[in-house]
């Protein structure tokens, strides 16, 4: 499961497909609000990215994957 909420963080790991958008949204809406950890993430499906952009959660770690780091991270930062 690429979206793995824990008590303190929401881990987003591996390659996220469209099916992960809803679980992520639910995790982000759940209380208490938790930051997301994206470090282990290698791809964000557009739907997942959209959720991140819309909800603008606090980001604990940023993805290390080159494409995401180069092009998606600025978007996530910008949005905040």
């Amino acid at each position: 499961m690429p979206v793995r909420p824990t008590e303190t963080l929401i881990h987003v790991e591996g390659g996220c497909g469209p099916e992960d958008a809803l679980p992520l949204l639910e995790a982000l809406q759940a209380l208490p609000p938790r930051p997301v950890a994206l470090a282990e993430c290698v791809h964000l499906h557009t739907a997942v990215l959209q959720v991140l952009m819309a909800v603008r959660p606090a980001v604990e770690t940023l993805p290390a994957e080159p494409f995401l780091a180069r092009w998606v991270v600025p978007v996530l930062k910008d949005e905040r």
Binding site: L25, V48, M53, A54
Partner: peptide, 17 residues
């Protein structure tokens, strides 16, 4: 760059798809 085409819907009515 990525931007929403329109302002984001309120979170509770956000359709992730």
């Amino acid at each position: 760059t990525l931007a929403p085409a329109e302002p984001w819907a309120p979170l509770d009515s956000l359709d992730p798809y």
